[in-house]
């Protein structure tokens, strides 16, 4: 079997949370193109219906399940309907997240409610989904878990607390998944997307078109597709507990926010040479 054939996901079933828009939709469509049937979970029915239409246009099946990932009962019901419809879950893509309440505030102004909402959305939601899906993966003899962290899971941010804490929590949660299930053929890894404006002009403007990103541009949603397929496929069979950050080079420097890295002045070297 050639190396490219190992990317095929025919006959597999992927649960994608936050599948209604942005990166979640792009990754769901890429998984479907690679051969997966999709369980599209998100809060807003109309958005996942649209994703489902696109999946079905490509000839794959798609189950739409409106889900609140911060509610364990809602997550459990979503996984039950996925099993009822398809009988298995091979890939769990925990993409849902966000929660902007309380963002931009210093610690002393953050309310209990804002803290819990942030942690629940980004960290507890992924825990609930893993808890519900892993028994099915174990029964089947394996599976792939893909969690979505962020550069803010690796580095801090000013006035950014729930997001950084929960995204960092996801990284170590994923490492523990890797340790716990490696022998039972479940691989758990992370994607860390950089700045992706999802075609939203306000976000493009806010991030100044990505001019501070080393590569000089922002990410395009569809660029997450092949990366997600790689992590869902047999081609990544020995990758476990690890991070793939797609972000145009910001983390390689990152001496200032958004990836800015100063250039070492050449004349300083010349002066040292003379001394």
């Amino acid at each position: 079997m050639g190396v490219l054939d190992k990317l095929r996901l025919d006959g597999k079933v992927a649960v994608v949370t936050g599948a209604g828009r942005g990166l979640g939709r792009a990754m769901a469509l890429a998984l479907a193109e690679a051969g997966c049937d999709i369980v599209a979970a998100a809060r807003t029915r109309s958005q996942i219906d649209e994703t489902a239409g696109l999946v079905r246009d490509g000839g794959r099946r798609c189950l739409v399940v409106p889900t609140d990932i911060t509610d364990p009962a809602s997550v459990a019901a979503m996984v039950e309907s996925a099993i009822a419809e398809f009988g298995r879950i091979d890939i769990l893509l925990n993409n849902a997240g966000g929660a902007t309440e309380g963002m931009g505030k210093p610690v002393e102004e953050i309310t209990d409610q804002e803290w819990h909402t942030g942690i629940d959305t980004n960290l507890s939601g992924t825990f609930y989904c893993c808890r519900a899906a892993i028994p099915h993966m174990l029964r089947q003899g394996g599976g792939k878990i893909i969690n979505v962290t962020s550069g803010f899971g690796l580095r801090g941010g000013r006035d950014n607390f729930m997001y950084t804490s929960s995204k960092a929590g996801l990284i170590n949660f994923t490492r523990s998944l890797a340790m716990t299930y490696a022998e039972r053929n479940i691989q758990a890894n992370l994607i860390a997307p950089g700045l992706f404006p999802h075609d939203n002009p306000a976000m493009v403007e806010w991030w100044r078109g990505g001019k501070f990103v080393p590569m000089g541009r922002l990410g395009r949603d569809e660029e997450l597709g092949p990366l997600c397929v790689f992590l869902a496929s047999d081609l990544s069979s020995y990758m476990n507990g690890d991070i793939l950050a797609l972000e145009g080079g910001g983390l390689a420097g990152g001496h200032a926010p958004t990836g800015f890295a100063p250039v070492v002045p050449l004349e300083a070297d010349a002066r040292r040479g003379e001394a």
Partner: peptide, 22 residues
């Protein structure tokens, strides 16, 4: 190496079966 990874740069991607997780 592929066109799929155009936006990937400066990364160290570990393929180590979870060895760095413990």
């Amino acid at each position: 190496a592929s066109d799929a990874a155009e936006y990937l740069t400066g990364q160290v991607v570990w393929i180590e079966g979870g060895a760095l997780s413990h």
